[in-house]
Amino acid sequence: MLIWFYLNSFLTLLIGNMFAYAMIIYSRAVTGSDAVTGLVYAGNLVPPLVLGMYAGTVIDRFTRKRVVMIAQTTFIYTSAAMVFLTTQQFFVVGDVMLIAVMLVNGIGLSFIIPGRMALLGDLFDQEHIPRESMKVQIMIMVGFGLAPFVVGFLRKYFDWYIVFGTIGIMYAFAMLLLLPLKTRPKQLRGDKESAWHSLKAGLRYVRREPLILSLLAATFVGLFLVGPLQVLLPEFSKTRLGLGEAERGSLMTVLGVGLLAGGGLAQALSHKMPRGLMIIAGALAAGLSMLMIPWLAAPVPVAISLGLSGIFGGLMSTLIPAAIQQATVDAARGRVMSIYNIVFQTSVASAAVGLSALAKQTSPAYAFEVGGWLIIAGAGACLLLQPLRKLK
Rank of each mutant, 00 (worst) to 15 (best):
M134D: 05
A22Y: 01
L277D: 07
G334D: 06
G115C: 11
M69T: 07
I320Y: 03
S214K: 00
L13S: 05
G121R: 05
V68R: 04
L223K: 02
M53L: 15
G145Q: 02
K182Y: 09
M53W: 07
L243D: 06
L358N: 06
I59E: 02
Q325G: 00
I15D: 08
V300H: 07
G38A: 08
A283N: 09
L265V: 07
G372S: 07
W4N: 15
V221D: 00
V150S: 03
L13K: 07
A298I: 12
L119Q: 00
M102I: 07
L284K: 02
L233M: 13
S363V: 10
F153K: 04
F344N: 06
Q386V: 13
A42R: 04
N8H: 15
M139D: 10
A217L: 11
L203H: 10
I113N: 08
L176Y: 11
M175E: 15
Y157T: 15
T219V: 10
N44E: 13
G249H: 04
L243V: 09
L216F: 06
A29V: 08
G287P: 01
T166R: 06
R275L: 01
W373N: 06
V226M: 08
H197Y: 14
S270N: 09
A118F: 11
S194G: 13
R275W: 01
Y77W: 15
A29Y: 12
I129P: 01
M170Q: 12
G94F: 03
G263V: 08
L288F: 11
F312T: 07
R240D: 11
A298F: 13
L119S: 00
C382V: 06
L259G: 03
I311W: 03
